[in-house]
Design a protein around this nucleic acid. Sequence first.
DNA 1: CAGTGAGCGAGCTTCCGCTTGACTT
Length: 773
Amino acid sequence: MTKNLVIVESPAKAKTIEGFLGKEYQVKSCFGHIMDLSKKDLGVDIDQGFIPKYIISPDKKKIVNELKKLARNADLVWLASDEDREGEAIAAHLMDVLNISESKARRIAFHEITKPAILEAIEHPRGIDRDLVNAQQARRVLDRLVGFELSPLLWKKIKPSLSAGRVQSVAVRLIVEREEEIKKFKVGSSFRIVGDFIVSTKDKVVPLQAELSERFSTREEAEAFLGRCIGAEFVVEDIETKPAKKSPAPPFTTSTLQQEASRKLGFSVANTMRVAQDLYESGKITYMRTDSLNLSNIAIGMAKQEITDSFGADYVKTRKFTTRSKGAQEAHEAIRPTYVNVRTVEGDKSHKRLYDLIWKRTIASQMADALLEKTTVTIGISTAIEKFLAKGEIITFDGFLKLYMESTDEEQNNGEERILPSLNKGDALDMNQIQAQQKFTQQPPRYTEAMLVKKMEELGIGRPSTYAPTISTIQRREYVVKEDRPGVTRTFQVLTLKDGEITSEEKSEKIGSEKAKLFPTDVGSLVNQFLLQHFMNIMDYNFTASVEEEFDEIAEGKLVWNAMIKDFYGPFHTRIEQTLEGTRKVSGEKLLGTDPKTGLNVFVKIGRYGPMVQMGNADMENKPRFAALKKGQSMESISLEEALELFKLPRTLGIVDNADVVVAAGRFGPYIRHKSQFYSLMKTDDPLTITMERASEIMTEKKKLDQEKTVKEFGEDSNLKILKGKYGPYISFNKLNYKIPKGKVAEELTFEECRKIVADSKPTKSSKSRKSK
DNA sequence: CAGTGAGCGAGCTTCCGCTTGACTT
């Protein structure tokens, strides 16, 4: 029997801590929250003062039973969940569910997984902070009320299965509004003047590039300026040198790791977290879901040693970073290598690269500032009042730059970090050429996943554990899509003054191509518009921040949690009911024009399954025709001609074996139907022009593949088959799948045996039911 | 994966935040 049971949230953490504590301690993990609100209904008893209806999460029943047994037999139970709102609630739930008495329970917390920190925590146990638990409860109940009242409203007013919530709806809003800004954006241009000069001294001739201190808004002005420069003299009027320094970025949090892995390694947010999870589980890095910039003293000490060994003591400058982000709860350390002296890890390329990034960032954060010397040379023009400026930068001490430099989302601007030749005031320069190049203003950038996370963190919406899932959710709901878009070619003008003559030419550049950027869909935009119209308070970018203030007051014991919820819910629920009764279904319907053949109206709108076109009004006599929009088409941009094309399907190709061969477009793209069998078209096949010949080819091919997939068929019942899948053979009966019991050989199963398996066992979950969990 | 779209209506969907394995067709 164990005297002490310690419960933490993560199993990897449990393993580490067990090593720090003696044999008297058994350390187990509860895998995060063990209880949640019932999902059957609202899960909140509103009439009784918003009393939550908690149940043990179905996937936690097993671990809860195990912990119950261990807790019963232990003398003391140490509740060591994270020291934040959610962690406190987990501790409280554990006490309840495991039936731990006050006298037997010890609540402890630590912010870093180091032996001194754990021992220190054991020395200072406390009770459960009920105010903090209530703050969590308020957060949980508010999110449930918002999500489970708004979502059904969307099902009724827009389309089924949609969702809305405090976090996801605001994330979608950011993307929709950015797209609107881009649409509204009016491009402007100006002429940037760059002069190429030559410095001739006694012993050498060196080039010097300088930019004019101002830009000209028109070609005429630029041309006039170049004209003024013909025959002018150029003289160095001033040289200014200023020292400057650059400091390293703080160590990684979840959000900055996602951003930097996206910029430097091209990882998606989900991929970064998957790889980081692996590194964490194998003990290579500290916890990867954190908003803390803190490094333990042990880690800083190790970093100091590592820097001294590799670069020398001059390169060391230890720092304690403090967080700036809204609502940070700092239950953990920043993300760092567990052993800072370990330079690389085993594993595949992505693991190595992510670890390398974390290692460099951690080490660099404890390195000296880089020292620079910034020089600006002012060049006067004898015939004009404008000045040319040549800017240079030299690094006098590289410091942390020796190892690591953070990237930015902005495109690299040119002309940085150049070294200037040595010059003196009064030096005359020879002009080689001066160019005026047309430069365009840039539209606001579209969000990458990581840029969206950055913005969400700034607004205080979402938490380190939810950034990646939220971004998946808004894509799964098809509110936004992550896509590449090709750019367009744009021409710009260049005027060149050389050898006393001004010439002009037109050049072209590729602009606006997008890679893995987030775009709103028609449904996303419509839902956003609907929510903005009726629930501005929830869509407000400051909504989370303001409720967080109230949660803090609850945590401080200054506000009663359900009183806060009541104040929110009253007006919110009224608004729900008003919208339910007072508004009609919204479909974003737009009249595109009329069909020249029939004279019927052609509309585009959102239907039960997404955007579609409709021919004919929905009146008593006639049923309108419908067709779904193709991938890549949008309600916003579809033309009448494109819409009319969509009505050309389904078309009958001919008759085979007394049955029509029909080409149509379905949910998953174009297909052929014959004798109630379906055959998908290839991407290269055009359903509008496909021939009977090609169609039979596709059908033969599919039949062959099906044949290969079939292990065994039975004459007794054609619905029962043994098929071969990715994970081996299985039984298929009436479109449900059943596992073959161990020890049975698929090929040898008889019809009766199969019938028995089907009757006795449950079908394996289809992917559809799994997705919904 | 499944191949739809009036309206009728049953019965389904849904939130955020904490954590990892299941076990796949």
